[in-house]
Design a protein around this nucleic acid. Structure first.
Lengths: 106, 106
DNA sequence: ACAATAGGTAGGAAAAATCCTACCGGTCAA
DNA sequence: TTGACCGGTAGGATTTTTCCTACCTATTGT
């Protein structure tokens, strides 16, 4: 497992679309996903492998199908990465509020 | 302005490090940033241009320097993109909670 | 005006990402 | 068991990304 980071995994629009489909429609077999894309099935397979290496999907075998499901843990890590920036922009908003009205509203 | 999406902009570790430096240290001139990287200054310049095209930094001229500052709006968009997934994983956690203890705790 | 400094742009090499067709293995149904 | 189906892997072409050195422009201080 080459261990792909979540930023790399999300950099491609097709992969983001896969995640959205799994989020909104639950687990999907590959062929079902493939029907949504203007792309060969093997190419989709590679995207799925990368998403799996990034921990963003899991695969479960069901007969001759493989059901891919969303795994959100890496997205939680992304939310964690984002948190200090939220703090930053809220500080800036707070500064702006303080500047506009000169009294301190906490 | 080629209009770069935030996912593409964040896909590179050097660019994420630039954002962190600007977040934690405020506006920086290019040379100051360049000192933090094992990379030529022109290469850093290209990363800065891409970050600017993604709206993640702004540049302000100050004499012969250019001060780059963090702009968080695209990160807010990213937080917005993330929101439906947070809902998803909280639903799953909620389902799990309901499964473990069979009474409903909201 | 001239040298020094800050930093962007050009051109190109090397590596990585994206996509394809062809092929292979596993599962199911007849 | 044999054929159809599901889906992964191999090999390779093309594009994009990343990085470099060389060079150019603009500002500042002497």
């Amino acid at each position: 497992m080459p261990d792909v980071d979540v930023f790399t995994a999300l950099a491609n629009p097709a992969r983001r679309e896969v995640l959205r489909l799994l989020r909104d429609g639950g687990p999907h077999p590959v062929a079902e996903l493939a029907r949504r894309f203007d792309m060969s099935r093997p190419s989709l397979s590679e995207h799925l492998r990368l998403l799996k290496d990034a921990g963003l999907v899991t695969e479960r075998r069901a007969g001759r199908q493989r059901l891919y499901s969303l795994r959100t843990e890496p997205l939680r890590e992304l939310a964690g990465w984002l948190a200090p920036y939220e703090r930053f922009w809220q500080d800036r908003l707070h500064d702006l509020a303080n500047f506009l009205e000169t009294d301190d509203d906490d």
